[in-house]
Design a protein around this nucleic acid. Sequence first.
DNA 1: AGCCCCATGTAATTGGTTACATGATTGC
DNA 2: GCAATCATGTAACCAATTACATGGGGCT
Lengths: 181, 181
Amino acid sequence: MSLRHALLGLLAHGPASGYDLTRAFDGSIGRYAWQAGHSRIYPELAKMAEAGQVVVEETGPRGRKTYALTADGHTELRRWMLHWPEQTSVRDETVLRMFLVQSLEPDDARKLLEGIAAHCAAEIENLRPVMEADDAEHTPGDPLPFGRLAGEYGLRQYEAVHGWALWSLERLGSAQPATRA
Amino acid sequence: MSLRHALLGLLAHGPASGYDLTRAFDGSIGRYAWQAGHSRIYPELAKMAEAGQVVVEETGPRGRKTYALTADGHTELRRWMLHWPEQTSVRDETVLRMFLVQSLEPDDARKLLEGIAAHCAAEIENLRPVMEADDAEHTPGDPLPFGRLAGEYGLRQYEAVHGWALWSLERLGSAQPATRA
DNA sequence: AGCCCCATGTAATTGGTTACATGATTGC
DNA sequence: GCAATCATGTAACCAATTACATGGGGCT
Protein backbone atom coordinates (compact mmCIF):
# COMPACT_ATOMS: atom_id res chain seq x y z
CA MET A 1 0.00 0.00 0.00
CA SER A 2 2.84 2.36 -0.80
CA LEU A 3 0.83 4.91 -2.73
CA ARG A 4 -0.63 5.94 0.59
CA HIS A 5 2.82 6.40 2.06
CA ALA A 6 4.02 8.32 -0.94
CA LEU A 7 1.10 10.71 -0.43
CA LEU A 8 1.75 10.98 3.29
CA GLY A 9 5.39 11.76 2.55
CA LEU A 10 4.56 14.45 0.04
CA LEU A 11 2.02 16.02 2.37
CA ALA A 12 4.65 16.11 5.13
CA HIS A 13 6.27 18.86 3.10
CA GLY A 14 3.11 20.93 3.28
CA PRO A 15 -0.63 20.86 2.51
CA ALA A 16 -1.58 20.14 -1.09
CA SER A 17 -4.55 19.28 -3.27
CA GLY A 18 -5.02 16.10 -5.28
CA TYR A 19 -4.14 18.12 -8.32
CA ASP A 20 -0.88 19.34 -6.79
CA LEU A 21 0.02 15.80 -5.77
CA THR A 22 -0.74 14.51 -9.25
CA ARG A 23 1.71 17.02 -10.67
CA ALA A 24 4.30 15.98 -8.10
CA PHE A 25 4.10 12.44 -9.48
CA ASP A 26 4.86 13.82 -12.93
CA GLY A 27 8.23 14.90 -11.56
CA SER A 28 11.18 12.91 -10.38
CA ILE A 29 9.30 10.89 -7.78
CA GLY A 30 7.23 9.40 -10.58
CA ARG A 31 10.23 8.95 -12.79
CA TYR A 32 12.40 7.10 -10.31
CA ALA A 33 10.38 5.92 -7.35
CA TRP A 34 6.62 5.54 -7.69
CA GLN A 35 4.08 6.33 -10.35
CA ALA A 36 0.48 7.36 -9.84
CA GLY A 37 -2.19 9.11 -11.84
CA HIS A 38 -4.99 11.32 -10.63
CA SER A 39 -7.59 8.59 -10.98
CA ARG A 40 -5.83 6.63 -8.26
CA ILE A 41 -4.81 9.60 -6.14
CA TYR A 42 -8.27 11.10 -5.61
CA PRO A 43 -9.90 7.95 -4.27
CA GLU A 44 -6.87 7.21 -2.11
CA LEU A 45 -7.00 10.67 -0.53
CA ALA A 46 -10.67 10.11 0.21
CA LYS A 47 -9.86 6.84 1.96
CA MET A 48 -7.04 8.44 3.90
CA ALA A 49 -9.39 11.17 5.05
CA GLU A 50 -11.85 8.51 6.17
CA ALA A 51 -9.02 6.80 8.06
CA GLY A 52 -8.13 10.10 9.74
CA GLN A 53 -4.62 10.37 8.31
CA VAL A 54 -5.38 13.56 6.40
CA VAL A 55 -8.00 16.31 6.60
CA VAL A 56 -9.41 18.78 4.12
CA GLU A 57 -7.84 21.86 5.54
CA GLU A 58 -9.35 24.31 3.11
CA THR A 59 -11.58 24.38 0.06
CA GLY A 60 -10.78 26.76 -2.73
CA PRO A 61 -12.17 27.73 -6.12
CA ARG A 62 -13.28 24.98 -8.57
CA GLY A 63 -13.91 22.63 -5.68
CA ARG A 64 -10.22 22.54 -4.83
CA LYS A 65 -9.60 20.63 -1.60
CA THR A 66 -6.36 21.22 0.20
CA TYR A 67 -5.35 18.23 2.28
CA ALA A 68 -3.12 18.37 5.34
CA LEU A 69 -1.55 15.61 7.44
CA THR A 70 -3.07 14.82 10.82
CA ALA A 71 -1.07 13.60 13.80
CA ASP A 72 -2.16 10.07 12.89
CA GLY A 73 -0.91 10.56 9.36
CA HIS A 74 2.43 11.71 10.65
CA THR A 75 2.69 8.72 12.94
CA GLU A 76 1.88 6.33 10.16
CA LEU A 77 4.44 7.92 7.84
CA ARG A 78 7.12 7.73 10.49
CA ARG A 79 6.26 4.12 11.30
CA TRP A 80 6.52 3.15 7.66
CA MET A 81 9.76 5.02 7.07
CA LEU A 82 11.58 3.57 10.05
CA HIS A 83 10.13 0.06 9.82
CA TRP A 84 11.92 -1.50 6.89
CA PRO A 85 10.48 -4.91 5.94
CA GLU A 86 12.64 -7.77 4.64
CA GLN A 87 10.90 -7.90 1.29
CA THR A 88 9.98 -4.60 -0.31
CA SER A 89 7.90 -4.15 -3.39
CA VAL A 90 9.90 -3.59 -6.61
CA ARG A 91 8.85 -3.34 -10.21
CA ASP A 92 11.31 -1.44 -12.34
CA GLU A 93 11.39 -1.84 -16.09
CA THR A 94 14.78 -0.20 -16.40
CA VAL A 95 16.46 -2.50 -13.91
CA LEU A 96 14.69 -5.44 -15.54
CA ARG A 97 16.30 -4.54 -18.86
CA MET A 98 19.69 -4.43 -17.18
CA PHE A 99 19.14 -7.85 -15.70
CA LEU A 100 18.32 -9.16 -19.14
CA VAL A 101 21.20 -7.64 -21.09
CA GLN A 102 22.81 -11.05 -21.26
CA SER A 103 19.78 -12.50 -23.01
CA LEU A 104 20.76 -10.52 -26.11
CA GLU A 105 23.30 -11.47 -28.78
CA PRO A 106 26.66 -9.83 -27.91
CA ASP A 107 26.31 -7.29 -30.72
CA ASP A 108 22.89 -6.21 -29.52
CA ALA A 109 24.08 -6.15 -25.93
CA ARG A 110 26.92 -3.84 -26.87
CA LYS A 111 24.59 -1.56 -28.77
CA LEU A 112 22.26 -1.40 -25.78
CA LEU A 113 25.03 -0.76 -23.26
CA GLU A 114 26.45 2.01 -25.41
CA GLY A 115 23.00 3.60 -25.49
CA ILE A 116 22.71 3.34 -21.72
CA ALA A 117 26.13 4.86 -21.17
CA ALA A 118 25.34 7.77 -23.49
CA HIS A 119 21.98 8.35 -21.87
CA CYS A 120 23.45 8.37 -18.38
CA ALA A 121 26.21 10.75 -19.42
CA ALA A 122 23.58 13.13 -20.80
CA GLU A 123 21.48 12.96 -17.63
CA ILE A 124 24.54 13.61 -15.49
CA GLU A 125 25.39 16.66 -17.58
CA ASN A 126 21.82 17.79 -16.98
CA LEU A 127 21.61 17.17 -13.27
CA ARG A 128 25.00 18.24 -12.01
CA PRO A 129 24.64 21.96 -12.80
CA VAL A 130 21.20 22.01 -11.19
CA MET A 131 22.59 20.54 -7.97
CA GLU A 132 25.56 22.88 -8.00
CA ALA A 133 23.34 25.91 -8.48
CA ASP A 134 21.20 24.71 -5.57
CA ASP A 135 24.26 24.34 -3.39
CA ALA A 136 25.66 27.73 -4.33
CA GLU A 137 22.47 29.40 -3.05
CA HIS A 138 22.44 27.40 0.13
CA THR A 139 23.80 28.81 3.38
CA PRO A 140 25.59 26.15 5.44
CA GLY A 141 23.64 25.45 8.61
CA ASP A 142 20.25 26.11 7.02
CA PRO A 143 18.04 23.07 6.50
CA LEU A 144 18.59 21.47 3.09
CA PRO A 145 16.11 22.37 0.33
CA PHE A 146 13.40 19.74 -0.05
CA GLY A 147 14.47 17.27 -2.69
CA ARG A 148 18.19 17.93 -2.43
CA LEU A 149 18.90 14.43 -1.06
CA ALA A 150 16.68 12.85 -3.71
CA GLY A 151 18.48 14.81 -6.40
CA GLU A 152 21.85 13.68 -5.16
CA TYR A 153 20.55 10.12 -5.14
CA GLY A 154 19.50 10.44 -8.77
CA LEU A 155 22.86 11.84 -9.78
CA ARG A 156 24.82 9.09 -8.02
CA GLN A 157 22.45 6.55 -9.50
CA TYR A 158 23.24 7.69 -13.01
CA GLU A 159 26.95 7.71 -12.26
CA ALA A 160 26.74 4.15 -10.99
CA VAL A 161 24.82 2.92 -14.04
CA HIS A 162 27.20 4.78 -16.31
CA GLY A 163 30.18 3.11 -14.71
CA TRP A 164 28.45 -0.25 -14.85
CA ALA A 165 27.68 0.08 -18.56
CA LEU A 166 31.29 0.94 -19.37
CA TRP A 167 32.58 -1.92 -17.22
CA SER A 168 30.13 -4.30 -18.91
CA LEU A 169 31.22 -3.22 -22.36
CA GLU A 170 34.80 -3.90 -21.42
CA ARG A 171 33.89 -7.26 -19.97
CA LEU A 172 31.84 -8.31 -22.98
CA GLY A 173 34.81 -7.42 -25.13
CA SER A 174 34.67 -6.18 -28.70
CA ALA A 175 36.13 -9.45 -30.03
CA GLN A 176 33.15 -11.77 -29.70
CA PRO A 177 31.61 -11.92 -33.18
CA ALA A 178 28.43 -13.95 -33.49
CA THR A 179 29.73 -15.23 -36.82
CA ARG A 180 33.30 -16.43 -37.06
CA ALA A 181 35.49 -14.72 -39.66
CA MET B 1 3.21 -5.79 -19.82
CA SER B 2 6.73 -6.34 -18.54
CA LEU B 3 6.09 -9.64 -16.82
CA ARG B 4 5.89 -11.10 -20.28
CA HIS B 5 9.26 -9.64 -21.19
CA ALA B 6 10.82 -10.82 -17.98
CA LEU B 7 9.67 -14.33 -18.84
CA LEU B 8 10.92 -14.05 -22.41
CA GLY B 9 14.28 -12.87 -21.09
CA LEU B 10 14.59 -15.72 -18.64
CA LEU B 11 13.62 -18.26 -21.27
CA ALA B 12 16.29 -16.84 -23.59
CA HIS B 13 18.77 -18.43 -21.22
CA GLY B 14 17.23 -21.85 -21.84
CA PRO B 15 13.94 -23.75 -21.64
CA ALA B 16 12.22 -23.82 -18.26
CA SER B 17 8.94 -24.71 -16.59
CA GLY B 18 6.59 -22.35 -14.81
CA TYR B 19 7.92 -23.78 -11.60
CA ASP B 20 11.53 -23.02 -12.56
CA LEU B 21 10.61 -19.49 -13.55
CA THR B 22 8.76 -18.96 -10.28
CA ARG B 23 11.94 -19.88 -8.41
CA ALA B 24 13.95 -17.51 -10.58
CA PHE B 25 11.72 -14.66 -9.37
CA ASP B 26 12.56 -15.63 -5.80
CA GLY B 27 16.17 -14.74 -6.58
CA SER B 28 17.80 -11.42 -7.37
CA ILE B 29 15.57 -10.56 -10.30
CA GLY B 30 12.60 -10.51 -7.91
CA ARG B 31 14.57 -8.65 -5.29
CA TYR B 32 15.82 -5.84 -7.48
CA ALA B 33 13.96 -5.76 -10.76
CA TRP B 34 10.56 -7.40 -11.03
CA GLN B 35 8.41 -9.50 -8.74
CA ALA B 36 6.00 -12.22 -9.76
CA GLY B 37 4.35 -15.19 -8.13
CA HIS B 38 3.34 -18.50 -9.68
CA SER B 39 -0.32 -17.54 -9.83
CA ARG B 40 0.52 -14.82 -12.31
CA ILE B 41 3.26 -16.71 -14.16
CA TYR B 42 1.22 -19.78 -15.16
CA PRO B 43 -1.60 -17.86 -16.84
CA GLU B 44 0.90 -15.57 -18.54
CA LEU B 45 2.83 -18.51 -19.99
CA ALA B 46 -0.46 -19.89 -21.30
CA LYS B 47 -1.22 -16.60 -23.02
CA MET B 48 2.29 -16.42 -24.44
CA ALA B 49 1.90 -19.91 -25.85
CA GLU B 50 -1.38 -18.85 -27.42
CA ALA B 51 0.39 -15.85 -28.92
CA GLY B 52 3.10 -18.11 -30.32
CA GLN B 53 5.99 -16.58 -28.35
CA VAL B 54 6.71 -19.79 -26.47
CA VAL B 55 5.96 -23.50 -26.97
CA VAL B 56 5.68 -26.46 -24.64
CA GLU B 57 8.82 -28.20 -25.70
CA GLU B 58 8.47 -31.19 -23.43
CA THR B 59 6.15 -32.57 -20.77
CA GLY B 60 7.65 -34.31 -17.78
CA PRO B 61 6.50 -36.03 -14.60
CA ARG B 62 3.73 -34.40 -12.50
CA GLY B 63 2.45 -32.57 -15.54
CA ARG B 64 5.62 -30.52 -15.81
CA LYS B 65 5.64 -28.41 -18.95
CA THR B 66 8.94 -27.15 -20.22
CA TYR B 67 8.56 -23.97 -22.23
CA ALA B 68 10.96 -22.76 -24.89
CA LEU B 69 11.17 -19.51 -26.84
CA THR B 70 9.98 -19.47 -30.43
CA ALA B 71 11.47 -17.24 -33.12
CA ASP B 72 8.58 -14.82 -32.50
CA GLY B 73 9.37 -14.80 -28.80
CA HIS B 74 12.97 -13.97 -29.53
CA THR B 75 11.98 -11.17 -31.87
CA GLU B 76 9.63 -9.67 -29.32
CA LEU B 77 12.27 -9.82 -26.58
CA ARG B 78 14.83 -8.14 -28.80
CA ARG B 79 12.35 -5.48 -29.86
CA TRP B 80 11.52 -4.69 -26.26
CA MET B 81 15.13 -4.63 -25.12
CA LEU B 82 16.37 -2.31 -27.85
CA HIS B 83 13.27 -0.11 -27.97
CA TRP B 84 13.53 2.02 -24.88
CA PRO B 85 10.41 4.15 -24.31
CA GLU B 86 10.56 7.64 -22.84
CA GLN B 87 8.52 6.72 -19.80
CA THR B 88 9.21 3.35 -18.22
CA SER B 89 7.23 1.74 -15.47
CA VAL B 90 8.71 2.14 -11.98
CA ARG B 91 7.43 1.21 -8.58
CA ASP B 92 10.16 0.79 -6.01
CA GLU B 93 9.45 1.03 -2.30
CA THR B 94 13.11 1.40 -1.40
CA VAL B 95 13.71 4.33 -3.72
CA LEU B 96 10.44 5.85 -2.50
CA ARG B 97 11.75 5.79 1.05
CA MET B 98 14.91 7.52 -0.07
CA PHE B 99 12.90 10.21 -1.78
CA LEU B 100 11.00 10.79 1.42
CA VAL B 101 13.92 10.89 3.86
CA GLN B 102 13.48 14.64 4.12
CA SER B 103 9.92 14.23 5.32
CA LEU B 104 11.29 12.93 8.62
CA GLU B 105 12.54 14.94 11.60
CA PRO B 106 16.34 15.32 11.32
CA ASP B 107 16.95 12.86 14.17
CA ASP B 108 14.82 10.21 12.50
CA ALA B 109 16.39 10.91 9.14
CA ARG B 110 19.84 10.39 10.59
CA LYS B 111 18.77 7.15 12.23
CA LEU B 112 17.35 5.92 8.93
CA LEU B 113 20.39 6.92 6.89
CA GLU B 114 22.70 5.20 9.35
CA GLY B 115 20.62 2.05 8.98
CA ILE B 116 20.79 2.27 5.19
CA ALA B 117 24.56 2.77 5.23
CA ALA B 118 25.06 -0.21 7.53
CA HIS B 119 22.76 -2.39 5.45
CA CYS B 120 24.55 -1.50 2.22
CA ALA B 121 27.94 -2.14 3.78
CA ALA B 122 26.78 -5.59 4.85
CA GLU B 123 25.41 -6.41 1.39
CA ILE B 124 28.63 -5.27 -0.23
CA GLU B 125 30.62 -7.52 2.10
CA ASN B 126 28.31 -10.32 1.01
CA LEU B 127 28.38 -9.74 -2.71
CA ARG B 128 31.96 -8.84 -3.39
CA PRO B 129 33.49 -12.23 -2.51
CA VAL B 130 30.84 -14.00 -4.63
CA MET B 131 31.74 -11.87 -7.66
CA GLU B 132 35.44 -12.31 -7.08
CA ALA B 133 35.11 -16.09 -6.83
CA ASP B 134 33.10 -16.04 -10.06
CA ASP B 135 35.81 -14.03 -11.78
CA ALA B 136 38.62 -16.24 -10.51
CA GLU B 137 37.01 -19.27 -12.18
CA HIS B 138 36.39 -17.43 -15.40
CA THR B 139 38.78 -17.78 -18.33
CA PRO B 140 39.19 -14.51 -20.22
CA GLY B 141 37.69 -14.81 -23.68
CA ASP B 142 34.92 -17.18 -22.60
CA PRO B 143 31.40 -15.77 -22.55
CA LEU B 144 30.51 -14.27 -19.17
CA PRO B 145 28.49 -16.45 -16.80
CA PHE B 146 24.78 -15.62 -16.94
CA GLY B 147 23.98 -13.08 -14.26
CA ARG B 148 27.49 -11.70 -13.93
CA LEU B 149 26.49 -8.31 -15.31
CA ALA B 150 23.40 -8.22 -13.10
CA GLY B 151 25.52 -9.06 -10.07
CA GLU B 152 27.95 -6.29 -10.84
CA TYR B 153 25.02 -3.94 -11.22
CA GLY B 154 23.75 -4.91 -7.76
CA LEU B 155 27.16 -4.39 -6.21
CA ARG B 156 27.63 -0.97 -7.76
CA GLN B 157 24.11 -0.08 -6.77
CA TYR B 158 24.83 -0.79 -3.13
CA GLU B 159 28.08 1.14 -3.32
CA ALA B 160 26.24 4.13 -4.75
CA VAL B 161 23.53 4.05 -2.09
CA HIS B 162 26.14 3.62 0.61
CA GLY B 163 28.03 6.66 -0.60
CA TRP B 164 24.81 8.62 -0.88
CA ALA B 165 23.76 7.79 2.69
CA LEU B 166 27.13 8.89 4.08
CA TRP B 167 27.05 12.07 2.03
CA SER B 168 23.51 12.77 3.21
CA LEU B 169 24.45 12.28 6.84
CA GLU B 170 27.25 14.76 6.42
CA ARG B 171 24.96 17.22 4.70
CA LEU B 172 22.22 16.91 7.31
CA GLY B 173 24.85 17.62 9.94
CA SER B 174 24.80 16.37 13.50
CA ALA B 175 24.13 19.85 14.85
CA GLN B 176 20.49 20.33 13.93
CA PRO B 177 18.54 19.59 17.10
CA ALA B 178 14.76 19.63 16.76
CA THR B 179 14.59 21.39 20.11
CA ARG B 180 16.87 24.32 20.80
CA ALA B 181 19.23 23.97 23.75
C1' DA C 1 -16.41 35.00 -26.17
C1' DG C 2 -13.19 31.52 -26.21
C1' DC C 3 -9.10 28.96 -24.90
C1' DC C 4 -6.25 26.92 -21.64
C1' DC C 5 -5.44 25.10 -17.47
C1' DC C 6 -7.26 23.97 -12.93
C1' DA C 7 -9.74 20.60 -10.61
C1' DT C 8 -12.33 16.54 -9.40
C1' DG C 9 -14.39 12.56 -10.04
C1' DT C 10 -16.22 7.52 -12.02
C1' DA C 11 -16.18 3.20 -15.03
C1' DA C 12 -14.16 -0.50 -17.49
C1' DT C 13 -10.38 -3.22 -17.99
C1' DT C 14 -5.97 -5.17 -16.96
C1' DG C 15 -2.32 -6.50 -13.80
C1' DG C 16 -1.01 -8.41 -9.35
C1' DT C 17 -1.52 -10.64 -4.51
C1' DT C 18 -3.34 -13.83 -1.40
C1' DA C 19 -5.75 -17.73 -0.55
C1' DC C 20 -7.74 -21.96 -2.03
C1' DA C 21 -7.22 -26.50 -4.19
C1' DT C 22 -5.16 -30.66 -5.87
C1' DG C 23 -2.09 -34.21 -6.78
C1' DA C 24 2.46 -36.73 -8.27
C1' DT C 25 7.31 -38.05 -7.26
C1' DT C 26 11.40 -38.57 -4.78
C1' DG C 27 14.05 -39.74 -0.92
C1' DC C 28 14.13 -41.66 3.49
C1' DG D 1 4.41 -45.17 4.71
C1' DC D 2 5.52 -40.34 5.28
C1' DA D 3 7.37 -35.90 4.51
C1' DA D 4 9.22 -32.59 1.57
C1' DT D 5 9.19 -30.66 -2.57
C1' DC D 6 7.77 -30.58 -7.35
C1' DA D 7 4.16 -28.98 -10.11
C1' DT D 8 0.04 -26.77 -11.86
C1' DG D 9 -3.86 -24.44 -11.68
C1' DT D 10 -8.30 -21.17 -10.17
C1' DA D 11 -10.93 -17.60 -7.42
C1' DA D 12 -11.55 -13.55 -4.84
C1' DC D 13 -9.86 -9.44 -3.95
C1' DC D 14 -7.07 -5.28 -4.37
C1' DA D 15 -4.21 -1.97 -7.13
C1' DA D 16 -3.38 0.53 -11.30
C1' DT D 17 -4.19 2.23 -16.10
C1' DT D 18 -6.95 4.11 -19.58
C1' DA D 19 -10.88 6.21 -20.98
C1' DC D 20 -14.93 8.78 -20.05
C1' DA D 21 -17.18 12.82 -18.03
C1' DT D 22 -17.88 17.38 -16.23
C1' DG D 23 -17.33 21.99 -15.10
C1' DG D 24 -15.09 26.43 -12.90
C1' DG D 25 -11.79 30.26 -13.23
C1' DG D 26 -8.24 33.14 -15.22
C1' DC D 27 -6.56 35.44 -19.04
C1' DT D 28 -6.74 37.82 -23.36
